[in-house]
Design a protein around this nucleic acid. Structure first.
Length: 429
RNA sequence: GUGGAUGUAGCUCAGCUGGCUAGAGCACCAGGUUGUGAUCCUGGGGGUCGGGGGUUCAAGUCCCCUCAUCCACCCCA
């Protein structure tokens, strides 16, 4: 019986695994150099944990099951609720700001398509317990720092930044009722995908006053925060939000990633819990879904039974990123699946004992060492050494038979010299 | 959930209007006389043509059903 892999999952053969490691290792080192600590939680949680802040539709997109004790559980579709739970449990003993990152494997029972699978990895970076705009700047910086380290330039990707706070203040200031904001956000979020007249029509239905609708449309078309002033009379909230946004841009400029960052009012984010700065990373051509997204949330801990402590964070999946890197040719160098220090070529079955002894000694000394199971021709064994990216190939042949010497070949320079076993191990160090 | 496309070797694919034992490139394995990595040359293994049914003297090719995958929409934490 032939069994195939489950829809939306991937098999990581060594070359594919090398790409995955390349991405995940990069996430980890970027996090660490930006001063974040790693955490993780269980891969399944109580189902209700994911129902707190989302509706039934989200639940349909969960892999959930009931255990033998009758508990309703779900495989994690995101790690933020786990983070909130973990932080809440120790909130009084954790030094602030809490700068944590995680690289969880997540599952969502959605229909797979380009850049979206049912099982994937997501890099999460969060700073909890700081209201400072510096925290938002650090999250964005860390995200760009990583992408830049891969070779993506400001011509390849953009961090599109906006502010929920500004948007809300603006809408209230022009006279939109507070209780209709929530229903307006999804429409604004959709604008980039819609033809202009379709957007105008949707907006017209949601906002009856033509003048207000027109002002909203103009707001959405802004490309620079300095232009906002002429659009409406900002109240206190709006002024504060504007100042914050402008400070953020200044900080990102000082941190040398200003050319990656643009103000873009289209960034609303569907999620209701965002309350301040919001941002998404997109490829410049905007042909892929977002590479990363995040923002500030004021009520997340509170939603999970904790105190009202503000946080700001970011999530980046591996699927879209891999497509982008591949399109930009940044994965072309064919990542190695094997990197030996030593390959032991044995040319005579009688000498296999010596080969095994040397292999074991080198391995014991901490060197990646491999050998051929068959005493085939030297040509073939050198080929094997080469394929395994071995730095050195030790040849055991007549010299060993006659003088107990190993022929040590440097695979890069092709130079070779005779050595005793002790010399081989000494040279290795 | 809706719509569109595609399933032929491990991978990427060719196979025209049905017609002999189903092909190519890459990959893999073995060789090219005793011990030097590339290229090249020769040979080899490997396919229920996604599955089932139908039409026909004859089906990878045409028709129906089914399964799977991909792409787009919905959604997107």
């Amino acid at each position: 019986m032939k069994i195939q892999s489950v829809k939306g999952t991937r098999d990581f053969y060594p070359p594919v695994m090398a790409v995955r490691n390349f991405i995940l290792d990069g996430w980890k080192s970027a996090s660490l150099r930006n001063g974040f600590e790693e955490y993780d939680g269980p891969i399944f949680e109580y189902l209700k944990m994911y129902q707190v802040k989302s509706g039934d539709e989200i639940v349909e997109q969960l892999f959930n099951f009931t255990d033998r004790g009758g508990r309703h559980l779900a495989i994690r579709p995101e790690i933020t609720p786990t983070l909130a739970r973990m932080v809440n449990q120790q909130i009084n003993s954790l030094p602030r700001p809490i700068k944590w990152f995680s690289i969880p494997r997540l599952c969502r029972a959605e229909r797979p398509q380009k850049g979206r699978l049912r099982e994937f990895f997501q890099w999460n970076v969060d700073i909890i317990g700081s209201e400072s705009i510096l925290a938002d700047a650090e999250v964005i910086y860390c995200t760009i720092d990583y992408l830049r380290s891969l070779g993506l330039t400001s011509k390849d990707i953009k961090a599109k930044i906006s502010s929920r706070k500004l948007l809300a203040a603006f809408l209230l200031d022009i006279g939109i009722a507070a209780d209709s904001l929530e229903s307006l956000y999804p429409i604004l979020d959709k604008k980039p995908k819609l033809p202009e007249d379709a957007f105008v029509e949707m907006l017209g239905k949601a906002v009856e006053d033509d003048g207000k609708a027109d002002t909203i449309k103009k707001f959405m078309e802004l490309s620079d925060i300095s232009e906002i002033a002429g659009l409406f009379n900002p109240g206190e909230e709006a002024k504060a939000a504007l100042q914050e946004l402008s400070d953020l841009m200044d900080i990102l400029g000082q941190m040398s990633v200003g050319d990656y960052c643009v103000f873009d009012p289209h960034i609303v984010r569907g999620l209701a819990y965002y309350t301040g700065i919001v941002f998404e990373i997109h490829d410049a051509a905007n042909s892929l879904r977002a590479v990363a997204g995040g923002g500030r949330y004021d009520n997340l801990l509170g939603d999970f039974g904790g105190p009202k402590v503000s946080g700001t964070g970011m999530g980046m999946g591996d699927c879209v990123l891999e497509i982008l890197l591949s399109e930009k040719g940044l994965l072309d160098g064919q990542l190695p699946t094997k990197n030996l220090d030593y390959f032991i070529a044995c040319l005579d079955t009688d000498l296999q004992g010596a080969a095994l002894e040397l292999t074991a000694a080198l391995r014991h000394a901490g060197f990646a060492t491999d050998f051929s199971y068959k005493a085939t021709g030297l040509k073939k064994q050198l080929k094997q050494a080469s394929a395994a990216n071995s730095a050195i190939c030790v040849i055991i042949g007549t010299e060993y038979k006659e003088k107990s010497l190993f022929l040590v070949k440097d695979m890069k320079t092709s130079g070779q010299q005779l050595m005793t076993k002790e010399q081989v191990i000494q040279a290795a160090k």
